[in-house]
Simulated scan of single mutants.
Amino acid sequence: MTVLPLAARSVGAANLPVIDIAGLSSSRQEKRAEVGDALRQICLDKGFFYCSGHGIPEGLINAVFDEMKAFFSRPEQEKLAVDKTKSFCNRGYEILRGQTLEAGAPPDLKEGYYVGVELAEDDPRVVARRFNRGPNQWPDDQPGFRPVMMAYFAAMLELGERLMRGMALSLGLPETYFDGYSRDPLGTLRLLHYPPQPPDAAPNEKGAGAHTDFGGLTLLMQDQVGGLQVHDSTTGNWIHADPIPGTYVVNLGDMIARWTNDRYRSTLHRVVNDSGRERYSVPFFFVGNPDHRVECLPNCLQTGETPKYPPTTVEDHLKAMYERTYTPPSTAI
Rank of each mutant, 00 (worst) to 15 (best):
V82G: 06
L60W: 04
S26K: 13
K79F: 11
M167G: 13
L186Q: 07
K79V: 09
D316P: 02
A63N: 10
N237A: 15
V115L: 03
F65M: 14
E30C: 08
I256F: 08
V18I: 12
C89W: 04
V18D: 10
R133T: 02
N299V: 08
M68K: 12
P195R: 11
L228K: 05
A103T: 02
G209F: 00
L159W: 09
T312E: 00
L217S: 13
L220Y: 08
A151Q: 09
L24N: 08
S52N: 13
L6F: 08
Q229W: 07
Q142I: 14
L219D: 05
R9D: 13
L60Q: 06
V35R: 08
D45H: 04
G253A: 03
G253Y: 00
L189I: 00
D254Y: 15
L157E: 10
E34N: 13
Q99K: 11
A128Q: 07
L109W: 08
A332Y: 01
V272W: 02
L191D: 01
S52A: 07
E111N: 11
R165F: 03
T267W: 00
H292I: 00
R263D: 14
V294A: 02
L169R: 07
Q302W: 12
I42T: 15
D83F: 15
G207H: 06
Y152H: 01
T85S: 14
L301I: 06
D20M: 11
Q302R: 15
G207P: 03
L80H: 01
E121C: 13
L80N: 03
E323A: 10
E175T: 07
K206E: 02
T303C: 11
V250G: 12
L119Q: 10
A63S: 06
V272N: 03
D232P: 12
T176V: 10
Q142L: 14
L318R: 04
E323W: 06
A257V: 10
L159K: 06
C89P: 07
M149S: 03
E111R: 08
E315K: 02
D108I: 05
G209C: 01
P243L: 00
E315Q: 09
T212R: 13
G160H: 04
L169H: 10
D254H: 08
P198F: 04
Q137A: 07
S25K: 14
H193Y: 15
L4I: 08
N299D: 14
P243W: 00
R125M: 07
M68C: 09
